[in-house]
């Protein structure tokens, strides 16, 4: 996968995986931590639709294995640099004592090489910063 990048993030939550998992598949629970509106059909091939502010994120579920793993695609309609299906978010929930360790991998993001991906970056930057601004506490 030349030129693609994986972003990772992780968090430890004081709750078992079975209590955490629904927050990735139930629209009413998802929007409490991600976005303002969601329409989810959590089965392989099912719809993953989410609005982050004014940005529509669209994709589909690829894998749904309660309570430990969920994978969906992630893109923005009309964005050449980030079309639906172009990137994939993988979430792994691992029990650790009474806690859950959540690991998130965002695969296939455009690479950082500035000069070879300048166009993509310019288009994407705006998008990312909007998402970043939205995500700021």
């Amino acid at each position: 996968m030349t030129g693609a990048e994986v972003l990772t993030a992780t968090v430890r939550i004081s709750a078992p995986p079975a209590a955490v998992f629904p927050y990735f598949i139930d629209p009413a629970l998802l929007v409490r931590w991600l976005g303002e509106w969601a329409d989810l059909d959590p089965e392989p091939g099912g719809r993953f639709a989410l609005d982050l502010g004014k940005t529509p994120v669209r994709g589909e579920y690829v894998e749904v294995e309660p309570p430990k793993r969920v994978v969906f695609t992630w893109g923005v309609p009309g964005r050449d640099s980030l079309p639906p299906g172009s990137t994939t978010v993988e979430i792994v929930l691992t029990a650790d004592g009474p806690d859950t360790v959540v690991e998130l991998f965002h695969h296939d993001l455009p690479a950082e090489e500035f000069d070879s991906h300048l166009e993509g970056w310019i288009a994407k930057l705006d998008q990312l910063v909007r998402l970043g601004a939205w995500a700021a506490p």
Binding site: A9, W33, V129, A135
Partner: peptide, 23 residues
């Protein structure tokens, strides 16, 4: 682009922190 990459790199951690709080 490093500063902007940091913003991107902050998207998911922020969201996951919120998830932790909510759960």
């Amino acid at each position: 682009l490093d500063p902007v990459r940091e913003v991107l790199a902050d998207l998911w951690p922020s969201a996951l922190e919120r998830l932790k709080y909510v759960v």
